[in-house]
Amino acid sequence: MKPLIVLIQASVVVLLIGAWELCDRVGAFDPSILPAPSAVAVALWSLLHSTVFIDDASDTIVRVISAFVIGAPIALATGFLMGENITVGRSLSPVFNLVLAVPQSIFLPIFALVLGLGFTEKLIFGITHVFFVVAISAMAAVSEVPHGQVVLARSFGAGKFRIYRSIYLPAMAPQIMTGLRLGLIFDIVGILLAEMYASRSGLGVLLLRWGEAYDVDKLMAATVLISVATIFVNEIMRIWEGRVGRWRHALEDR
C-alpha cells in the first residue's frame, strides 16, 4: 500500500514538471517569465559552482543559525518562567499575544533605522521571529505537565531538580520540539525578509536583484534551492519531534 502511494505522489510531481517543460517547448509559457525546468536545472548547477552565490548563501545561513542559537534558549527560559510562575505568566502573556497579532515585518523599517543594515539588524530581526513562537510553546508545554505525576514524584522523595528532569522535561519535550521547528522556519522567513528589504549580502539580496534584472533562470533556481533546503530542515525536525513525542501519539490513538 505505502510504496504505491509514494509512487503515485512521485508521478504527480514528475507529471507537473513534464507539463511545465512541454508548455515552454511549445511556446505556451514565455521563457523570460516562466523558464523551462531544464533551463532552471542548468542555472541551478552553475549557481552551486559560483563562489558569489555560495558566499551569499553562507551569510544567510550564519545569520539564521546565530539568531536561532541566541533566540531559542532565551525564549525557552522565558516561556518556562511564564508557565511556572503565575505572576510572570499573567504579566507577560497578554503582551506576547498582542505582539503575535501584529505582522512583525512592519517593524523592519524601524529596525533598519535604529540598527542600520548590518549583521546586527538581521540578527535581532531573526531573534524576534524565533522568540515569540518558541516562548509561547514553552509556556504551553509547562501547562501540559501533569500535576498528579509531580505530586507522585514528590511522594517518592524527588527534589525540585529531579522533578524537572524526570517529569517536566519528557512531558514538555514534544511541544517544545514543535515550537523550535516553527521558530526555525520563522527565523528563516525573518532573515530572508530583512535581506530582501535592504542588505549588502545574503540570499534575499540575490533573489531581489535577479527578480529586478529579469534574470529568471537564476531566480527560479535559487527559489527551488531554498525551498528544498527548508523542506529538508523541517522534515528532519519533524522526524525528531515524532520520536520525542511517540508516547503522546499513542495516547491520542487510544
Partner: peptide
C-alpha cells in the same frame, strides 16, 4: 508510599 486514583504512571 502513596497510590492515587488515576494510576499516574509515566506514559513515556
Amino acid at each position: 508510599s502513596v497510590m492515587f486514583q488515576d494510576a499516574t504512571l509515566l506514559p513515556w
